[in-house]
Structures are given as structure tokens and as C-alpha cells.
Amino acid sequence: MIRHVVLFKFKPGIDWNDPRALAAERTAAKVGTEVPQLRDWRYGRNLSTRDIAYDFLVDGLLNDMEDVEKYLVHPFHQDAIRQWREISDWVIVDVEV
């Protein structure tokens, strides 16, 4: 199994009052039901106010790296990427669990 974790950090001038952030959050919430390779899907806003904190997390569980590759190119996921790219930078990790 592969745990795919992404942490998003808003670009300067973006916060949760921005309609683009709210739209990206709504799209992220649906990824788990739209991408069949995902066995589990979690997402949420960060509660920490520390400077090093990121703003949002998505966390997916997939069978293997082949499923990760299918997830990455899925059209719904690609739409989510487009939305998040406009408002944030991110880091990812894929770990075997």
C-alpha cells in the first residue's frame, strides 16, 4: 500500500477568504469519490498558526505505485491540481505502508 500525502501552502495574498481557496477545498473533498484508485481519502485545513505550518492537507491510500500513476493523471485530479496551482505551492510524499 502507498500513502500519498500532499501539503499545500498558500501563495502570498491568499487565505481562506479567497473564493479560489474555497473552490479548491470543495474540489479536494470530492477527489476521494471521483478517483477509483483511492482506497481512502482524507483532507483538511491546518489548525496550527505557526509560521512553518502549511495550510491544507490531502492524504490518500492507494494499492501500489501503478495506482498512484493512474491517480495522478485522472481528469478530476488534474482539475484539482489546476485549482491548487493557481493559489498555492505544495510538497508531497509517497510512502509504503
Rank of each mutant, 00 (worst) to 15 (best):
M1T: 07
I2T: 11
I2N: 07
R3N: 11
R3L: 12
R3I: 11
V5H: 02
V6Y: 05
L7C: 02
L7G: 00
F8D: 04
F8Y: 09
K9G: 10
P12V: 05
P12D: 04
G13V: 02
G13S: 02
I14K: 05
D15C: 03
W16Q: 08
W16Y: 06
N17S: 12
N17P: 08
D18Q: 01
D18R: 02
R20H: 01
R20S: 03
A21N: 07
A21Y: 00
L22G: 07
L22Q: 15
A23L: 11
E25H: 10
E25Y: 12
R26W: 11
R26K: 14
T27P: 04
A28Q: 04
A28D: 05
A28P: 05
A29T: 06
A29R: 09
K30L: 15
K30C: 15
K30S: 15
V31Y: 00
V31E: 02
G32N: 02
T33N: 09
V35H: 14
V35S: 06
L38K: 09
R42H: 13
R42Y: 08
R45W: 01
R45I: 01
L47E: 14
L47T: 13
S48L: 11
T49E: 11
R50S: 11
R50D: 13
R50H: 07
D51K: 15
A53H: 06
A53G: 06
Y54G: 03
D55Q: 06
D55H: 04
D55P: 07
L57H: 06
L57Q: 10
L57G: 12
V58I: 15
V58T: 14
V58Y: 03
D59W: 02
D59P: 11
L61V: 14
D64T: 10
M65Q: 10
D67S: 15
D67I: 03
V68D: 12
E69K: 15
E69Y: 11
Y71D: 10
Y71R: 09
Y71Q: 06
L72R: 15
L72A: 14
V73M: 02
H74I: 03
P75E: 03
P75C: 05
F76R: 07
H77C: 04
H77Y: 08
Q78V: 14
Q78S: 10
D79K: 09
D79C: 04
D79I: 11
D79M: 13
D79A: 11
A80P: 03
I81D: 08
R82I: 08
R82N: 12
R82G: 13
R82Y: 04
W84Q: 00
R85A: 05
R85K: 13
E86H: 00
E86W: 01
E86P: 01
I87M: 02
I87T: 01
I87P: 01
S88T: 03
S88N: 04
D89C: 00
W90A: 00
V91M: 07
V91H: 08
V93E: 05
D94W: 00
V95T: 14
V95I: 14
E96D: 12
E96C: 12
V97D: 05
V97M: 09
V97A: 06
